[in-house]
C-alpha cells in the first residue's frame, strides 16, 4: 500500500515535469515555425509583435544578460559562501558559530521580492550616486549574490561537516597547520559537495525573477559596463507575458524553454559532480 502510494507520488512529480516541458514545446511551436531559429539571434532588436513579420525577436541580449548576472553572482558568492562555511566550522568559537549559522539560515528564508524591494530603494540609489541610472548589471549581480550566498554557505557547511573525522585526525597527527588541513584535506574531500552547492546556487540565480526585474533596469541591450542596465530572460517573461499575443507570446515560451534547457544542463552537471567521489589526494 505504502509502496504504491510512494510510487504514485513519484510518478506524479515526474509527470508534472514532463507535462510542463510538453506544454512549453507546444506553446513555442508557432514561434519556431513563423520566426525561425535564426531570427532569435540575428534580428536587429527585441521589439516583438503578435505577427512575426512585423516584429523583431533578438533574444541574444537577454541570454547574455541572464548569463552575466548569474556568472557574476556565482563568482562573488561562491568564494564568500565557502569561506563562510570554513569560518563556521573551523575558526568561529561555538558561541559565535551557532548564531552565525542561524543568521545564514534566516537569510536563505527571505522571500526574493523583499531582496528586490530592498535593492530598489537602497542599493539602486547608492549605485545611481556613482553612475546613472543605478538600476544596472552591477545591482543585479549584488542582489543575486546576496540571495544565493546562504544556499552556498549552508550546503558547503554540510559538505565540510561530513569530511571523515579520521582524515582530520590524520592531518593533525601529521602536524599540519589549520590552513594546511583545510587546503590539503578538507576542501579536496568535500569537493563534490562544494560543487553541488555552487550548481544549486547557479540554478537559483538563473531562475530568479522578481528581484532581478526590480533592480536590473530591464533595457534590452548588450551591457557596455557594469553600470549599464540589462534584461534577463526571466524578467522579460514576467514583464511581457500578461500583454503578449500571437508570435510574441510564443517567443516568450521559447525563452522559457531555453531557461529550462539551461537548468537541465546544470542538473546533469550536478548529477555527474555528486557521483564522482575523488579519492583523497595525499596531503
Amino acid at each position: 500500500m505504502l509502496v504504491r502510494l510512494l510510487r504514485l507520488c513519484a510518478g506524479l512529480s515526474a509527470m508534472i515535469v514532463l507535462v510542463i516541458v510538453a506544454f512549453l514545446v507546444r506553446e513555442s511551436l508557432p514561434a519556431w515555425r513563423s520566426v525561425g531559429l535564426a531570427r532569435f539571434v540575428t534580428d536587429a532588436s527585441w521589439h516583438p509583435a503578435p505577427d512575426a513579420s512585423e516584429g523583431t525577436f533578438n533574444l541574444l541580449p537577454m541570454i547574455v544578460g541572464t548569463l552575466l548576472t548569474t556568472a557574476g553572482a556565482v563568482l562573488l558568492a561562491g568564494p564568500l559562501g565557502i569561506a563562510s562555511a570554513l569560518f563556521c566550522r573551523y575558526y568561529a568559537p561555538p558561541m559565535l558559530a551557532r548564531p552565525y549559522r542561524m543568521m545564514i539560515e534566516l537569510l536563505a528564508g527571505i522571500p526574493s521580492v523583499v531582496y528586490g524591494f530592498w535593492g530598489l530603494v537602497v542599493l539602486v540609489p547608492i549605485i545611481a550616486g556613482i553612475a546613472q541610472p543605478g538600476a544596472s548589471l552591477l545591482a543585479g549581480i549584488l542582489i543575486l549574490s546576496l540571495m544565493i550566498l546562504p544556499t552556498i554557505a549552508l550546503v558547503a557547511d554540510a559538505a565540510i561537516g561530513s569530511v571523515p573525522q579520521e582524515s582530520l585526525q590524520a592531518a593533525a597527527a601529521l602536524g599540519l597547520s589549520r590552513w594546511g588541513t583545510m587546503a590539503g584535506v578538507v576542501l579536496p574531500a568535500a569537493r563534490s559537495g562544494l560543487l553541488t552547492a555552487v550548481i544549486l546556487a547557479t540554478m537559483r540565480a538563473l531562475g530568479e525573477t522578481m528581484a532581478v526585474l526590480m533592480v536590473c533596469g530591464n533595457v534590452v541591450q548588450l551591457p557596455g559596463s557594469l553600470f549599464a542596465p540589462v534584461r534577463t530572460l526571466t524578467a522579460n517573461i514576467a514583464l511581457e507575458m500578461a500583454y503578449a499575443m500571437g508570435d510574441h507570446r510564443s517567443a516568450l515560451f521559447v525563452s522559457g524553454l531555453l531557461l529550462m534547457g539551461l537548468v537541465a544542463l546544470l542538473v546533469a552537471a550536478a548529477e555527474i559532480a555528486s557521483r564522482t567521489r575523488p579519492s583523497l589526494r595525499q596531503a
Binding site: 533596469g217 533595457v219 534590452v220
Partner: peptide
C-alpha cells in the same frame, strides 16, 4: 517605442 532611448524599463 523603437525611438525611445530608455535607461530603465519598468513593469
Amino acid at each position: 517605442n523603437t525611438d525611445v532611448a530608455a535607461d530603465v524599463v519598468i513593469g
